[in-house]
């Protein structure tokens, strides 16, 4: 069931997920499109997430936005519910309640141990989004696991001290007892500045001709978890199950690539180790059980399904 509407206010609205925004020319959503989008959300009981560009919007836009309950996704250092940055060397002015999305390529991720550790002490929640996930090799998983363990050691100390910073790659799985996927096209849709609906911003960025009718999304069932043969049996609950990445890497929206699965399972296993380490010192999340497994890609055990 649809729950969210993402509204890209401008062609240069900040990219906050796996796909870069290739647009460099400003094109503000026409005011009537904005009003129609808000009206659509109100009539369909959808929570709006407005995605902002890196410039100030006209006052009439701000007034329109204020007519509905919403969340703001803004480029760092602008103030919003979620700030998106592309550089881990951030100076957080006001850490109270800060939720930061940090988009990084693999190469930067592997040298960001200290800066991310520093950020974890400053923000309420840090979402790290790897923007070249498809370039991960199996050899990369070892240093990636070690990096996660390093952050896990810090998080363990924070949790035992009574503070609870969140790092999506480690703490989400630790808190989840069911999948928490992106669910683009099932629970959320995106309205682009051109007035058309897309499954998510990435489809607008990379295939703007592939807009959808929100009342009749073709093969919508294939976007649902129950129609994803690998994912429906998977317990890497924190994985975004990105259907855009699926489409790009396997040519089918319901099938993840090996890289997406292997990275998610490396994170899952690191979460398991973190959970065990915290439990050595204190009772913590007794309802969560992350089992020991001997694979990093459910595809490798598909014959056992």
């Amino acid at each position: 069931m649809m729950q969210y509407l993402v509204i890209l206010l401008d062609d240069t609205s900040v990219a906050y997920c796996h796909c870069d925004n290739p647009h460099r020319e400003r094109r503000l959503m026409p005011p009537e499109t904005l009003r129609d989008g808000i009206r659509y959300a109100m009539t369909h009981n959808l929570m709006i997430q407005f995605v902002y560009p890196d410039y100030d919007l006209p006052q009439d836009y701000l007034d329109a936005i204020d007519t509905i309950d919403h969340h703001d996704i803004v480029p760092f250092p602008r103030q919003g519910d979620v700030a998106v940055a592309e550089n881990s060397k951030l100076k957080i002015e006001n850490s109270a309640g800060a939720v930061v999305v940090l988009r990084m390529k693999k190469a930067e991720l592997f040298v960001s141990g200290d800066t991310v550790a520093a950020l974890l002490r400053q923000v309420q929640r840090l979402n790290i989004v790897i923007t070249d996930l498809d370039t991960f090799t199996d050899a990369d998983l070892v240093p990636y696991g070690a990096l996660l363990d390093r952050w896990a050691a810090l998080l363990k100390e924070e949790y035992l001290a009574g503070r609870t910073p969140q790092l999506n790659l480690l703490t989400d799985r630790m808190m989840l007892t069911a999948p928490n996927h992106c669910n683009a096209g099932v629970e959320n849709l995106t309205l682009a500045p051109n007035g058309r609906f897309y499954l998510c911003p990435a489809f607008y960025y990379t295939a703007s001709e592939e807009s959808v009718d929100p009342e009749d999304i073709p093969n919508q069932q294939l976007l649902r978890l129950d129609h994803a043969p690998l994912c429906r049996r998977c317990d890497a609950y924190h994985c975004r199950r990105c259907v855009w990445l699926n489409q790009r890497t396997t040519l089918d929206a319901n099938t993840p690539s090996h890289e997406q699965c292997a990275v998610a399972h490396t994170e899952r296993n690191a979460s398991r180790r973190l959970l065990a380490a915290i439990r050595e010192k204190a009772q913590f999340m007794p309802e969560v059980d992350i089992k020991e497994i001997n694979y990093i890609d459910p595809f490798d055990i598909r014959k056992d399904f």
């Binding site: 043969p229 890497t249 396997t250 040519l251 099938t255 993840p256 690539s257 595809f299």
Partner: peptide, 8 residues
């Protein structure tokens, strides 16, 4: 990766 949809 392109065989995964077929084999599942």
């Amino acid at each position: 990766n392109l065989l995964r949809p077929f084999l599942t």
